[in-house]
Design a protein around this nucleic acid. Structure first.
Lengths: 219, 219
DNA sequence: CTAGCATTTGTACGACTGTCCAAATGAGGC
DNA sequence: GCCTCATTTGGACAGTCGTACAAATGCTAG
């Protein structure tokens, strides 16, 4: 009687299938009929549960963004406890991207799958998606920027924002095209290897954040 | 009689309109009728000139990739003449991304518009587009990787590939979402300012490339 | 067992898609 | 002036899209 959000298994199946297909092929390219077939649900059921295709997308975001951002907050506060600024910087960078890259997230699906979905959908410039993303991720991103600023007090805030932006871009690009690294390196590097990607991106990002500010030149 | 590719102004108009729309909204989201209307052409004319929607996309790539890659090659060989490895590294990075970011390219449209198109279309995982991109840009990218390797002989090639990949990701992300930097910084940084983006990304990338290799840890 | 309600089903709708084609148009060589 | 061929036009085509809805179904409380 008063259990408003009882989770039918069909609802979950639809969410799973949609998430998988969206993350692989993008939002616009996937039809509701594909989702219906992949999830074993009837076409009408999707409309019944989620109202519209946009509603389905929003439900996917709502399922993940809560736990993911909670995890990032935890890791951030944990990282901020580190005294040495150098170690702290690395820990913050790691906390920033680990929940996106890690394969198995606490609650439901994989964090990597959801992150790839975000990257792909964001690139499609879908208006609804952009709104959801901004609402959901801007606050936590600002918290990370503040934490980075504390590690690098001499750096203008604009520089930190730029470099954070580049970090997000590197993560997105890696999630969208993992095979690109593998091909360009002739197999020497493995773009699909999550741990390798994490190690590489953290090292590069930390070095980038430690670069001098943009006011004056070298020697 | 034997002038196979006479350039009617209509053909150019269609290419211009399509490029503008694709770069703004992506490939799948733009219909041929939109392109027809925006260019003042008839729907049938597009099929007549380019055969199909994929053919139109391929024509856009063919119009730009030649001049762009020629420019990149020139800048690369120019940069490789620099003796000092530190200065050379920065020049190579600049040569790598400048033709993508610079507003006015030699031949036809803006280089930034085409680069944004590449980034958006690539994110859509359109098969034809991925094929074209790989064919066209892999060789020159490998040349850049070789040049970077020469500046950083102590670094494993896999690390260089990873960091080049991150650099491409940062550029893509900036082209797709220029406003994101502006918003996150509260207006302090300007994502749409090409020169600012170039300066910031070069400084960050150079520092990232100079980071130590991944075999052993710090203190 | 039955009434009531949440869910699932099947289908239909109008709008939009990329592609194709016959007819109309127009400009340049003879 | 006419013939030729590239280009443009307008419309038709088969297909897919997201959405809506009445009817069928199944589960659960009483």
């Amino acid at each position: 009687m008063l259990m408003p959000q009882r989770q039918t298994s069909m609802r979950e199946a639809i969410l799973d299938a949609a998430e998988e297909l969206f993350s692989k092929n993008g939002f616009r390219a996937v039809s509701m009929r594909e989702i219906a077939q992949a999830s074993g649900a009837n076409l009408g059921s999707i409309s019944y549960h989620f109202g519209s295709k946009d509603g389905l997308l929003r439900a996917i975001y709502e399922r993940h963004s809560g736990p993911m951002n909670r995890r990032r907050s935890e890791l951030l506060t944990e990282a901020q406890r580190i005294r040495d600024p150098d170690d702290r910087l690395e820990a913050i960078v790691r906390a920033f991207i680990l929940p996106s890259l890690s394969q198995s997230e606490g609650s439901v699906g994989g964090g990597a799958r959801f992150a790839r979905l975000r990257a792909v959908v964001m690139a499609e410039r879908h208006e609804e998606a952009q709104k959801i993303i901004a609402e959901t991720f801007n606050p936590i991103n600002l918290a990370f920027i503040d934490a980075l600023q504390a590690c690098l007090p001499q750096l203008p805030r604009a520089d930190i924002v730029w470099r954070t932006h580049f970090l997000l871009g590197a993560v997105s690009y890696t999630l969208i095209n993992p095979w690109r690294v593998t091909r360009l390196s002739g197999g020497e590097a493995d773009g699909e290897n999550t741990e390798e990607a994490l190690t590489q991106i953290v090292r590069a990002a930390v070095a980038a954040f430690r670069a001098p500010a943009g006011s004056d030149a070298a020697p």
